[in-house]
Write a protein that binds this DNA or RNA. Structure first.
Length: 595
RNA sequence: GCCGAUGUAGCUUAGUGGCAAAGCAGUGGUUUCGUAAACCAUCGACGGCAGUUCGAUUCUGCCCAUCGGCUCCA
């Protein structure tokens, strides 16, 4: 099994999985079985509903098959021939794929949608004509497949593992039947497999839902599913984050505003949310009139803009808002702080002249880069284009998309394009953060909007005293404060750097009689503007240290008779242990330097 | 919302068709202790609603929540 790329191995294992399924469940109908990051999966339809307990049996069957040293055989056949083959095998999903191949030359859903003219006819890709397709056979399993594959099952390693079963909609469409997806990990050798498993274990240890509870940052309750409760320590973290954010925005020429969370139906009708976002909104009645809780902050910002007359001299007008929004997300998507139903966007709406657009976008990109750097995150950028339920003409969308691209190019940022993933009012740039375990999270977004200014009849007065239509930019950098705190927690594994740590210094007196001096020490530290706790409880020193370490407090000061006598405190640093004795002023200076 | 799994005390876990077990945490004492768990005592739980049963935490159904995916998304 040499020189076979991992990709080939994973793909071939997907076929072996399918063969194993066919052996165990002869009636199986097969969907698709691609390679994914770290492994592979196959979507299947069988009568039995599989659970985790079924996986070892399937895995065993796969290993059996591999042992038999079966060759992978490739055949090029005409479309008609392929159709006959899969009809004979009773594989309706494969036949559906063949139909698409014939009609559009691809099985990629995005491309098909475009070619079918359902969205973005203007972007029009060309259909490639396909006359022949390749099929691969291994044992009794025949698959429509581009390949490539290993030559023989003897080229496959045993370093794979089936890990999950779940439902998955056929072709990713909610309206299609749900198939069963079996997912597996696969690596070149046992060592890589186990190191990946270790990495998963490490990620589990950093789970912000667990740390959030242990560190008393936040909680969730059945009484408000998806609505996070922030505890005192979580609030400290949050306030530090927000203060930092406010300072950076002041420096960058933003003004802060706050808009109501409850606004009337007529406003949401005007903004288009009523038509385009209703399924995600919460409603109520006040004095018999319909109101909605805001799912986005823009209409509020727009009303502020409209409340006075603006000259071209005032633009760009950068209006920032830490805005609390509520969105009724499907119950199945909720995930700790990463996905909640109420969250605070670090939003801003920038109103500007059309000439200012590229320059402003570049400024936002710069600010985003600066803020991410503060936390040591790297990131990649994606550009999302016009979605199915879009408002506004193709012309306007093209123009907006072009501006975003232009700014990205000028900033020399590479980007991936997500077709049809934009907001309903405009295309967007998304920033995806990479944490220390290599996982990515969507946070910042820049959305260019020519639609809302039109809907709300916004204008400014130009040089000649004439009314002109401004362009609007919606943007976030952290994305949501809640999600960002979740990411920070996992990134640091709960060991927040000194400037973010809810408690920076724990002061631990050894004996009862050391408490008065310890109290003085902690007061001095507090006066020096550090967050400190005095632990004057009954526990032994060892126990207090254990607790302080569990709480991941950056510094621990031990106060006993010796310290009291020498007026120097014994300093213990998180992860480092004892780092010596020093005066309080020296200690404070050291902390200051670390900030 | 869909597919699958799970739900015992604040946390981690044990267990049973017949009084639900423990460690940590908490509380009350004793101890005054020098760098990751002192000692004694004590409080505290079977997610909810039905059904089967003499009896249900245990079996069945429905609901709720959580976890892993799908779809969606900051």
């Amino acid at each position: 099994m040499k020189q076979n790329s991992l990709e080939k191995i994973r793909h071939s294992l997907a076929h072996i999985l399918a063969l194993a399924i066919k052996n165990l469940y002869p009636e199986a109908k097969f969907g698709v079985g691609p390679v994914i990051e770290n492994g592979f999966y196959y979507d299947i339809e069988i009568r039995k509903s599989l659970s985790l307990e079924d996986l070892p049996k399937i895995e065993k069957e796969m290993k059996n098959i591999i042992k038999q040293e079966i060759p992978f055989r490739k055949k090029i056949v005409s479309l008609d021939e392929a159709r006959r083959i899969f009809k004979g095998l009773k594989q309706p999903y494969k036949i559906e794929l063949l139909k698409d191949l014939e009609k559009y030359g691809t099985t990629e859903q995005d491309e098909i949608r475009q070619l079918a003219g359902k969205i973005n006819p203007s972007f029009g890709a060309k259909s490639k004509k396909i006359k022949k397709v390749s099929i691969y056979q291994v044992g009794d399993f025949v698959d429509l497949c581009r390949g490539p594959h290993v030559k023989n099952t003897r080229d496959l390693p045993s370093s794979f593992k089936l890990i999950k079963v779940s439902g998955a909609y056929w072709r990713g469409e909610e309206t299609n039947p749900m198939l069963q997806r079996i997912m597996g990990l696969a690596f070149l050798n046992e060592k890589e497999l186990s190191s990946y498993l270790a990495q998963i274990e490490e990620a589990e240890k950093r789970d912000h839902r667990v740390l959030g509870k242990n560190l008393e940052l936040f909680s969730f309750h059945d009484e408000g599913v998806g609505f996070p409760f922030f505890h005192p320590k979580g609030m400290i973290l949050r306030n530090i984050l927000e203060d930092y954010w406010k300072k950076e925005h002041q420096k960058s020429g933003y003004e802060e505003v706050k808009t109501p969370i409850l606004l009337s139906k007529s406003l949401w009708m005007q903004s288009g949310h009523w038509d385009h976002y209703k399924e995600n909104m919460y409603f109520t009645k006040i004095d018999n009139k319909d109101y909605a809780i805001k799912p986005m902050n823009c209409p509020g910002g727009i009303l502020i803009y409209k409340s006075s007359l603006h000259s071209y001299r005032d633009l760009p007008l950068r209006m920032a808002e830490l805005g609390l929004v509520h969105r009724h997300e499907l119950s199945g998507v909720l995930q700790g702080l990463f996905r909640v139903r109420s969250f605070t966007q670090d939003d801003a709406h920038i109103f500007m002249t059309p000439e200012q657009v590229t320059e402003e976008i570049k400024k936002v990109i710069d600010l985003t880069a600066r803020i991410y750097k503060k936390f040591g995150f790297s990131y990649h950028v994606e550009l999302s284009t016009k979605p199915k339920n879009a408002m506004g003409s193709d012309d306007v969308w093209q123009k907006a998309t072009k501006s975003l691209k232009q700014s990205l190019k000028e900033k020399k940022l590479d980007f991936i394009i997500n077709k049809g993933e934009g907001a309903f009012y405009g295309p967007k740039i998304d920033f995806h953060l990479k944490d220390c375990l290599g996982r990515t999270w969507q946070c910042g977004t820049i959305q260019l909007d020519f639609v809302m200014p039109e809907k709300f009849d916004l204008f400014y007065i130009d040089k000649k005293g004439k009314k002109q239509r401004p362009v609007m930019l919606h943007r976030t950098i952290l994305g949501s404060i809640e999600r960002f705190i979740g990411i920070l927690t996992e990134n640091y594994g709960g060991e927040f750097p000194l400037w973010l740590a809810p408690v920076q210094v724990a002061v631990l007196p050894i004996r009862e009689k050391n408490v008065p001096f310890a109290k003085k020490v902690s007061e001095t530290i507090r006066e020096n503007n550090f967050r400190t706790e005095l632990w004057s409880g009954e526990d032994t020193l060892s126990k207090k240290i254990k607790k302080a370490e569990e709480q991941k407090i950056p510094y621990i000061l031990v106060i006993g008779d010796q310290e009291e006598k020498s007026r120097k405190v014994a300093v213990r640093k998180r992860k480092k242990g004892d780092i010596g004795k020093m005066t309080i002023s020296k200690f404070s200076a050291m902390l200051l330097k670390e900030l």
